Computed example of a mutant assay.
Amino acid sequence: MNSIDSVTLEVADAEAAARFYSDAFGLDASRVRVRASEAPSTGFRGFTLSLVVSQPGNVDALLAAAVDAGATVLKPAEKSLWGYGGVVRAPDGTIWQLATSKKKDTAPVGREYDEIVLLLGVEDVKASKQFYVDRGLGVGKSFGGKYVEFATGPDTVKLSLYKRRALAKVAGVDAEGTGSHRLVLNGETEPFEDPDGFAWQPAQ
């Protein structure tokens, strides 16, 4: 196993969720899939998905499209030390970060994105890092017990680890949550769960 081929979001209404992701972000089932589920879940689900884009105008365009499609703004787009970004919650409850490291537009604005990043909020970053390294993932960047970014190939979902409470703060929500993550990671692997209960299954 060396990458995530796609992620599956478990939602109450799969048809509505698929329509939202198409209308808001132009996403299809090649990277982000949805399936109906009634698994109990309350509060923060322990992860965020990010669309990383090339310039601030694209952040604004994606955020506006998400709101038009029914998303709720958790953090308005604004400049920061690392760039520019905002956070929205999709109608199905999934939290999305829209971000760029750039601070100025250099091309026509659009809803194009460069990367999809899955950030898992974990209790012990070092232990989870070792768990994934033992399963074949290579480390791209690592900052002690705070943050890990795994090296993944092109046209895949990038995987990163962050402290759960820190990730909730970035997302603008309370860190408490119970029940299902409502998320499945799909890759070239046998089914398993990581130390924080995130489920993997073979890619199909």
Rank of each mutant, 00 (worst) to 15 (best):
S128G: 07
F198N: 05
A16T: 02
A168D: 07
G172S: 09
G121E: 03
Y132A: 13
G93C: 04
L185R: 03
G140Y: 02
Q97G: 14
K103C: 12
I4N: 05
L63W: 01
S37W: 00
Q130F: 03
K163E: 15
E176V: 12
P76I: 05
F44G: 09
S160D: 07
K141Y: 12
T152N: 08
D13Q: 02
A175L: 02
V59D: 10
R111I: 11
V53S: 13
W82A: 15
E10Q: 12
L118T: 00
T42F: 09
A16H: 00
G121F: 04
G172K: 03
K163N: 14
D23Q: 11
T42M: 10
Q130P: 00
V87D: 06
L63N: 04
E115K: 10
W200T: 03
S101V: 13
V59M: 11
R31D: 06
Q201E: 15
S37M: 05
K158S: 15
E112A: 15
D68P: 02
Y21V: 06
A12I: 04
G145Q: 04
S22F: 04
T100K: 09
R33E: 00
A168K: 05
V157N: 05
L120Y: 05
R111P: 12
V32T: 02
S22W: 01
R182F: 05
S142E: 15
D60T: 11
V157M: 07
P40I: 08
S142I: 04
G153L: 07
G179N: 05
S54F: 02
P195V: 10
D114G: 13
G144V: 06
F143Y: 12
S160L: 11
T156W: 00
A69V: 02
A99T: 09
E78M: 13
A36D: 04
T72S: 13
V184P: 03
